[in-house]
Simulated assay, not measured.
Amino acid sequence: MSGRVLVVDDNKVIRQLIRVNLELEGFEVVTAGDGAECLDVVHQVRPDVVTLDVVMPRLDGLRTAARLRSDPRTAHLPIAIVSACSRCDVEGGERIGVDAFLGKPFEPTELVRLVRRLMPARGPRAADARASTPRC
Rank of each mutant, 00 (worst) to 15 (best):
D34W: 12
V41H: 07
L39C: 01
L102D: 04
G61M: 07
L62Q: 03
R63M: 05
V41P: 07
M56R: 02
A100W: 09
G61S: 08
G33Y: 00
V30W: 11
V55R: 09
L68M: 04
A84I: 10
E107V: 15
H43L: 14
R67L: 13
A100M: 09
R73D: 11
V30R: 09
E28H: 04
V45P: 08
A80L: 05
S83I: 11
V82G: 00
C88R: 06
F106C: 08
V42I: 15
G61Q: 04
H76K: 02
F27Y: 15
E37D: 12
L39W: 03
R46L: 15
G61I: 09
E28L: 09
R95I: 15
L59N: 02
C85Y: 00
T74Q: 01
R67P: 00
G103T: 07
T64P: 01
M56Y: 08
R95D: 15
V82P: 00
R46N: 13
C38G: 07
T31V: 14
D60W: 06
L39A: 01
F27A: 10
E91K: 04
L68S: 02
D71Q: 11
G97F: 13
L68Y: 02
S83A: 15
R87T: 12
L62R: 01
K104M: 13
H43P: 01
D99N: 14
G103L: 05
F106I: 09
E37G: 02
Q44W: 03
A32K: 11
A65Y: 09
Q44H: 08
V55S: 06
G92R: 14
V30K: 08
V82C: 00
H76Y: 06
I96C: 05
L77E: 02
V98C: 14
R73W: 05
G97K: 08
R46P: 06
R46H: 13
P72W: 01
H43T: 10
R87F: 11
R69D: 06
L77I: 12
M56W: 08
G103I: 07
L39F: 03
V82Q: 00
V50I: 13
